[in-house]
């Protein structure tokens, strides 16, 4: 391991082309947060258990603390910043707000990206709630309202 940023990557982050020189050891999570400046992706455990850092790489949910920045060369990366804006929340974000699906909000971006990835993969609501959501740790909510929000979102007629 050296501190030399000697790997050149080109990646598309939230529809914007990003060219960068990165160290071989730089995690995707650190690259997104500190090099690209997208701090919506949160790092909570850095050992791949909690899911807070989940982003989509070519539409697949991945734990960005378990992936190197060098690995997304040529890939599309989508983060929570791609979903909606404060004035125009996405339907999933609106459902989370309405159902009180977040408290401190630290785990929330990762959960949003997992649900978004599930939608893109054509999962149904049961698969998202029962299989995907338990891949995330939330210490505040007790999950009930997150489940309610996901169900409300899918009930609106999600387009796969």
């Amino acid at each position: 391991m050296t501190g030399e940023p000697d790997i050149r990557i080109t990646t598309t982050v939230n529809d914007v082309t990003v060219e960068a020189q990165v160290e071989g050891r730089t995690l995707l999570s650190d690259f997104l947060r500190h090099d690209v400046g997208l701090t919506g992706t949160h790092v909570a455990c850095e050992h791949g258990v909690c899911g807070a850092c989940t982003v989509l790489v070519d539409d697949q949910p991945v734990r960005s603390c378990l992936m190197l920045a060098a690995q997304v060369d040529g890939c599309r990366v989508d983060t929570v910043e791609s979903l909606g804006t404060q004035d125009d929340l996405s339907p999933l974000q609106s459902a989370m707000w309405a159902e009180h699906g977040l408290q401190c909000g630290f785990c929330t971006p990762g959960i949003l990206m997992t649900v978004e990835g599930g939608r893109r993969a054509g999962l149904d609501v049961r698969q998202v709630v029962e299989d995907a959501l338990p891949g995330h740790l939330c210490r505040c909510t007790g999950y009930q309202n997150i489940r309610n929000a996901i169900e409300s979102y899918f009930a609106q007629g999600v387009q796969a």
């Binding site: 909606g84 404060q86 974000q93």
Partner: peptide, 12 residues
């Protein structure tokens, strides 16, 4: 505070 937190604009 939620819209800010939901779009990744928290300031942790």
């Amino acid at each position: 505070n939620d819209p800010r937190l939901l779009v990744g604009r928290g300031r942790f």
